[in-house]
Nucleic acid binder design. Structure first.
Lengths: 171, 171
DNA sequence: TGTAAATACCTTGATATCAAGATAAATTAT
DNA sequence: ATAATTTATCTTGATATCAAGGTATTTACA
């Protein structure tokens, strides 16, 4: 039996539940708690770099989605908000903001008059190209302290988890 | 080389970056993307059960923190908002709301007049006791489809990840 | 060809959250 | 004992988000 080097915040939570409600098997809380807490701490680390480019995470998300779709960097709003897991109303606000910053522009959709396509401006393209490079550097640095075997285990587990959640979601 | 059964949403994103920016090693985006996306999909699954008890996730979080602290289920606001990773201002709003729902009550702190302690009411205690049981059932069910080895890998990876993030955070 | 149904947004109103600043009490250093 | 500093909240103002509902188009099909 290998002793854990140091208890993390979630270990303490599980200890408390174990003491208070020994009738419950709270093991899954450990998995989900660490997942959520890791996601929160990670976001803070990512925000630091985005801020250096005058951006927030949500702005990065939208611009990056357009960028990686390839030239001409142009998508319909529905494509964007379904990829980003946000509502259409939220997308409307984001696009208005990005448009007023001059990072995207709207143009008529020749195939469907209900939508106005969203396109990266030259300024938006340049910004996201530079930001994504710094972002990739950042996340390499963040994951660097992890042992290779831990990272490998994490990837294996997350692939299974996301696969499960997405297949449950489409039902 | 084992072929992946089915591509998830993050695989598609990585494919796009690979095509558009082959100069970047975007592997870490896969890990972080799945982590974030899993967290988002999980929250939806958890919300379903909380809603059955007339609660939201944030209400559950506060009440559960008080409950697992043990009798007399009473903590200072600072203890709560640091555990919950939210700001003091947000905590103020949450407590006001929970107090008006009759789930917590405030009382003077004999040791420190700057804070007013937060305590579960009988109603709050009963509600959280019942909700946490349903929640634990829920998360057991959610993780059930995962193969034991995948779950084990996930736990190993998340312990390493959170440990790394927390140690980086305290610096 | 017309209609009914579905789709693609956008608008509105309500929440939840945060950052920054204000206030009051406790602690620390003279 | 005082003054300076730190701590524990709460307040305020700005954002981001969602759910629900409205409008204009498109698609399905009788």
């Amino acid at each position: 039996m290998k002793a854990k080097q140091q208890k993390d915040a979630v270990d303490l939570i599980l200890d408390q539940w174990e003491r208070e409600r020994p009738d419950l098997d709270v093991t899954p809380m450990g998995t989900l708690g660490r997942l959520k807490r890791s996601a929160a701490l990670l976001q803070r680390r990512l925000d630091v770099v985005f801020a250096e480019f005058g951006m927030t995470l949500w702005e990065f998300d939208v611009l990056a989605t357009l960028r990686r779709s390839g030239a001409p960097y142009c998508l319909a709003p529905t494509e964007l908000f379904s990829t980003l897991m946000i509502t259409s109303g939220t997308m409307t606000h984001r696009l208005k903001s990005l448009e007023s910053s001059g990072l995207v522009e709207r143009q008529a959709n020749p195939d469907d008059a209900r939508s106005k396509l969203v396109k990266l401006t030259d300024k938006g393209l340049d910004l996201i190209n530079r930001t994504v490079e710094a972002h990739v550097d950042n996340i390499h640095g963040i994951l660097a302290p992890l042992a290779g075997s831990d990272l490998q285990a994490l990837d294996q587990g997350l692939v299974a988890m996301l696969g499960m959640l997405e297949s449950a979601d489409e039902k």
